[in-house]
Computed example of a mutant assay.
Amino acid sequence: MFTGIVEELGTVAAIEEQGDAIRLTIRATTVLEDAGLGDSIAVNGCCLTVAERTEDTWTADVMQETLDKTSLACIAPGDRVNLERAVTAHTRLGGHIVQGHVDGVGHVVRRSPSEHWEVVEIALPPELARYLVDKGSITVDGISLTVVEAGAESFTVSLIPETLARTTLGFRQPGDRVNLETDVIAKYVEKLLGGRAS
């Protein structure tokens, strides 16, 4: 489990193609301070497992299912990625409950800068729209954000300077793909109330 509070921007160091999978190596510092083999680290919101590590890199095996369902299929060496270690019992829950299980891929529609913040509109798959509400939570590339306006085909978020400086949303442009994870509590409530709304 994660909180959606990005700890650092890592850099993709290498990608080894394996046919139906890739081995992804990422250069980092903060998330490696106490990371061991088998630990979970979220990469742009995707929960991956540390399979190898050196002093300044770690490697994960990314299966075809993950490549099919996330934007990790589009990354390349040199790309910057959001990184967050899994929570511990002593971690502050600064964002919201994030599983690291991507529900779908959206894309940036537009950016509207202002003096002290920036509003970003993101398109989402229609089947995810029912889980979003104004002032609810959404995870975009692993970043816990508050929805400003929730629509049937897109939603908006307001980004403060800290988020713009410390995450990939500071440089994502219209058309760029982003991983989306909706609030797990909304999905459980829907199931408990009898399934999907028609």
Score class of each variant (00 low, 15 high):
Arg110Cys: 12
Glu65Gln: 11
Ile122Ala: 01
Leu132Pro: 03
Ala51Leu: 09
Ser114Tyr: 00
Ile122Leu: 05
Asp79Met: 12
Ala60Asn: 10
Glu52Ser: 09
Glu84Met: 07
Asp39Cys: 07
Met63Ser: 04
Trp58Leu: 10
Ala35Asn: 04
Ala35Trp: 01
Glu118Met: 15
Glu84Leu: 08
Asp103Ser: 13
Gln64Tyr: 00
Val120Ile: 15
Glu118Ile: 05
Leu132Ala: 04
Val119Leu: 09
Arg110Ala: 15
Pro113Trp: 05
Val133Asn: 00
Glu127Gly: 06
Asp134Thr: 08
Val43Glu: 03
Gly106Pro: 09
Cys46Thr: 15
Ala76Arg: 15
Cys47Val: 06
His90Pro: 00
Glu55Pro: 00
Leu72Glu: 11
Gly94Arg: 10
Gly95Asp: 08
Arg92Phe: 13
Val87Thr: 11
Asp134Glu: 12
Glu121Phe: 03
Arg111Ala: 09
Ala86His: 05
Val50Tyr: 06
Asp39Asn: 14
Ile122Glu: 02
Arg92Tyr: 07
Asp79Pro: 05
Ala123Glu: 14
Val87Asp: 00
Val98Asn: 03
His101Arg: 07
Glu115Val: 09
Gly95His: 07
Thr70His: 10
Leu93Ile: 15
Asp34Phe: 01
Cys47Tyr: 06
Ala123Val: 02
Val133Gly: 01
Ala60Arg: 10
Pro113Ile: 05
Gly45Trp: 04
Ser112Cys: 02
Ile122Gln: 01
Asp56Met: 02
Asp79Ile: 02
Arg92Ile: 11
Val98His: 03
Thr59Gly: 08
Cys46Leu: 02
Val98Trp: 03
Ala73Glu: 12
Gly38Gln: 06
Glu55Tyr: 02
Asp103Asn: 15
Pro125Phe: 12
Leu37Glu: 13
Glu84Asp: 08
Met63Pro: 00
Asp103Gly: 13
Asn44Tyr: 01
Trp58Tyr: 15
Asp79Thr: 03
Asp34Leu: 01
Leu48Asn: 07
Pro77Phe: 06
Leu124Met: 12
Met63Arg: 02
Gly45Thr: 04
Cys74Leu: 14
Arg110Pro: 00
Leu124Glu: 04
Val119Lys: 11
Thr54Lys: 03
Asp61Glu: 14
Ile75Phe: 06
Ala35Cys: 04
Val102Pro: 07
Glu118Leu: 14
Pro113Leu: 05
Ala129Ile: 04
Leu132Ile: 03
Asp56Ile: 06
Arg130His: 02
Ser112Met: 12
Glu127Val: 10
Val98Met: 14
Ile75Gln: 05
Val62Thr: 08
His107Thr: 11
Cys47Gly: 05
Val108Trp: 04
Trp117Asp: 14
Ala123Trp: 02
Gly36Ser: 10
Pro113Val: 05
His96Met: 09
Asp61Thr: 13
Ala42Glu: 03
Glu127Met: 08
Ala73Gly: 06
Thr49Ser: 11
Gly38Trp: 08
Leu67Thr: 11
Gly78Ser: 10
Thr49Ile: 09
Thr59Cys: 14
Gly104Val: 13
Leu128Ala: 10
Cys74Ala: 14
Cys46His: 01
Thr49Trp: 09
Leu83Val: 06
Asp79Glu: 03
Thr70Asp: 10
Ile75Trp: 04
Leu132Asp: 04
Thr54Ile: 04
Val120Leu: 14
Gly36Ala: 11
Gly94Ala: 11
Tyr131Arg: 02
Thr54Gly: 15
Gln99Val: 00
Lys69His: 12
